[in-house]
Amino acid sequence: MSTTETTASGVGPVEGAPVHSADNPAPLIEAPRLRTKKTPKSTRGNFEMYGWLFMRLSGVVLVVLVLGHLLIQLVLDGGVSKIGFAFVAGRWASPFWQMWDLAMLWLAMLHGANGLRTVINDYAERADTRLWLKGLLYTATVFTILLGTLVIFTFDPNIR
């Protein structure tokens, strides 16, 4: 009835040889960033918001604490040459300087750790890399904070 020539696939002759067919399909291009069922469930908490707020507030407080610390340690009363065991012992005899250093330790460590956490989230591409880097970060942070706190509260000026 019809004289029109068609190939088995029903596609008429076109320029060049068809590269792909049903038996030899074109490569499927995966969309790697698509949100699929495998994508981690979103976390609808306020953690990120409090983290963001903490960075701003601790930053403001740290400006005072760190600049004050540097001024006392490096500039006033003869600069760095005065720093020694006796100088530290003298300062930590006062609860005010203990609290100052404790606040500085905790705020700086948490501020820095949270900053590095976001850097890891932004730059580490593989889930495994993220996990290990963050594990290392949290371990180092907890260790430093605990050790520093221990030293501030158990410092013994009569140690020999």
Binding site: S42, T43, R44, G45, N46, F47, E48, M49, G51, W52, T118, N121, D122
Partner: peptide, 14 residues
Amino acid sequence: LEILNDRDGVWRCR
């Protein structure tokens, strides 16, 4: 706002 409060919401903006 609740949707954008997500871990991958506005707080990832640098």
